[in-house]
């Protein structure tokens, strides 16, 4: 029963971080989904910064023919999927996907500022969301399942 108890403790202790990541991923899905929609419908996104259409029309808006918005959408969905995978493997996978997403979003934001010379608010919002997901995913990976207490080493709960 000890192992079961231990297994039961881990998810519940890590739950606030998992929930926070899931909520952020859903926000990201909303943003990336909207950008994917406007890309395929060929309409201009609602934009207060004035540069969204220019960014969407730039050569960097696609990666090997796939809109980066769609890649972002897949990224957020993958983050959500990895949250279901239990144990260290799942937490590492979440961190890996989120770090790739945050790194690539950072690169795209650099391109907006330095090369395309236009800012797309939706893209920046997505970059911020993905960065937050990455930070939380790294904390979740480093933190013990017991919420900072020493890791259960198999003897926990023994008399």
């Amino acid at each position: 029963m000890t192992a079961e108890q231990t297994a039961a403790r881990a998810p519940s202790a890590a739950r606030p971080l998992t929930i926070a990541i899931a909520v952020l991923a859903v926000v990201g899905i909303g943003i990336a989904g909207y950008l994917t929609y406007v890309h395929f419908e060929d309409i201009e996104p609602v934009c207060t910064t004035g540069g969204c259409a220019k960014v969407q029309a730039s050569e960097y808006s696609e990666l090997a023919g796939v809109p980066v918005a769609t890649i972002g959408l897949v990224g957020y969905l993958t983050v959500l999927a990895t949250l279901i995978v239990p144990g260290e493997l799942g937490r590492a996978a979440t961190a890996l996907v989120a770090l790739i997403g945050a790194g690539y979003s950072g690169y795209l934001t650099y391109l907006e500022l330095a090369v395309i010379d236009a800012i797309c608010q939706w893209c920046v919002a997505s970059a911020i969301v993905m960065t937050l997901v990455a930070i939380l995913a790294v904390v979740r990976l480093l933190r013990d399942p017991g919420g900072g207490r020493p890791a259960p080493d198999g003897r926990m709960g023994e008399p």
Binding site: Y60, L63, V68, A92, L96, G103, Y104, Y107, V138, L141
Partner: peptide
Amino acid sequence: TRKQRLWLLGGVAVAAIAVVAVLALVSGG
């Protein structure tokens, strides 16, 4: 456990950097 996780994080970070570098190259930059 902490050390093991730091190593794991290091590996994850290196893998992420490698993937981002490839994406940046492929994206016509």
